[in-house]
């Protein structure tokens, strides 16, 4: 039986050429990464160090820190939904002072750039927090303006262009560090949100966070998460976030970092063809702790087989110029009619 969690069903990506000769480096603004593969915030921490050599990763991304102390959501905080999961962790945080005093120093032992993920309840708090992160060891700030759990009813800045522009502009004035903005798929028009973030000064966009979702235990009639709603992650997200990556890449000129359901090199390649310059691996690490290493090796092997000299050449290499792109909801219906 094919097991969707493993890469056993993925056709061999290598099998020709010299993977070691492939240049895996990618550029995100002024920052050059040794390869395009990094963890997604919230799925990575010091605890992975015995299992994955951090020096092999393109970047290291911390769990989101908030200026204030946060306890997080009630349990259960996780539930399995088909081939994926819901989480409602609620961003437990020991606060920025602790983060700067303890978490950042731990990562200074690695040469891999550290991306500090931050969230806050207001634009002012975001700006104040970003200022505090200007410490040795922090290479990039990733602004989590998209976490669906942080505010009541799952609302977040990234749901609309206007609050996105406001919060990004405030952060931009507060830091000279590279500022990556993590967008939310929980919006009707991600291209407009992407443009708002780019115009307000973001250096790159991470596309994106989890999709707000819900699951119910039909035996008990109760929600399966203590917080009732939570974020969906895992393989089911991939086609949606690949589409959003494609839309954002067409909308802005700054780099896109693709994220959502990436477990294999083949998944990462899809995102890069859609326009991503780098990728984040999240939930797959829970299933296969070494998933990021497989993605790194698989990308080089794929490029070697295809005769592609640089992994970065995959970015936006999608062949779609001969195709009409109209992302309306009824397109699917038209296609169904055509098929039938």
């Amino acid at each position: 039986m094919v097991d969707a969690r493993t890469d056993s069903h993925v056709p061999a990506l290598g099998g020709g050429g010299d993977a070691a000769a492939v240049d895996s480096r990618v550029r995100i603004g002024d920052l050059v990464l040794r390869n395009p593969v990094m963890p997604a915030s919230g799925t990575f921490a010091e605890g992975l160090a015995p299992v994955v050599p951090f020096e092999r990763l393109g970047a290291l991304v911390t769990k989101t820190v908030t200026p204030e102390l946060r306890g997080g959501n009630p349990t259960p905080r996780v539930c399995e939904v088909g081939q994926g999961m819901l989480n409602s962790i609620g961003i437990p945080s020991k606060g920025l002072d602790y983060f700067v005093a303890h978490t950042v120093p731990f990562y200074r032992q690695f040469s891999t750039p550290l991306v500090a993920s931050i969230s806050a309840p207001s634009a002012d708090a975001f700006a104040a927090g970003v200022e505090k992160l200007a410490v040795p060891g922090v290479a990039v700030i990733e602004a989590n303006i998209s976490c669906p759990n942080i505010e009541e009813d799952g609302k977040a800045f990234a749901m609309d262009p206007r609050p996105t522009a406001q919060v990004v502009a405030r952060m931009r004035r507060a830091t000279t560090l590279p500022l990556w903005v993590k967008l939310s798929p929980n919006t009707g028009d991600i291209a407009s949100v992407a443009r708002a973030a780019a115009d307000a000064g973001a250096d790159a966009l991470v596309v994106g966070n989890t999709i707000l979702a819900m699951s119910i235990d039909i035996e008990t009639f109760r929600p399966r998460l203590g917080n009732v709603m939570g974020g969906l992650s895992g393989p089911g997200l991939k086609p949606i976030l690949v589409r959003m990556t494609y839309q954002c890449a067409r909308a802005v000129s700054i780099p896109i970092i693709g994220c959502g359901g990436i477990a294999t090199a083949a998944d990462a390649i899809e995102y890069m063809l859609a326009g991503a310059s780098a990728v984040q691996v999240g939930t797959a690490t829970f299933v296969r702790p070494t998933a990021m290493l497989s993605v790194i090796d698989g990308l080089a092997a794929f490029c070697a087989r295809k005769g592609i000299a640089r992994v970065a050449d995959l970015t936006g290499a999608l062949h779609d110029t001969d195709m009409k792109v109209e992302a309306h909801d009824h397109d699917h219906d038209h296609m169904s009619e055509a098929v039938s």
Binding site: T43, A45, T75, C79, N87, T285
Partner: peptide, 10 residues
């Protein structure tokens, strides 16, 4: 209930 087992996901 757990996901990562490594102290990462909380």
């Amino acid at each position: 209930q757990m996901a990562c087992g490594l102290g990462m996901c909380f």
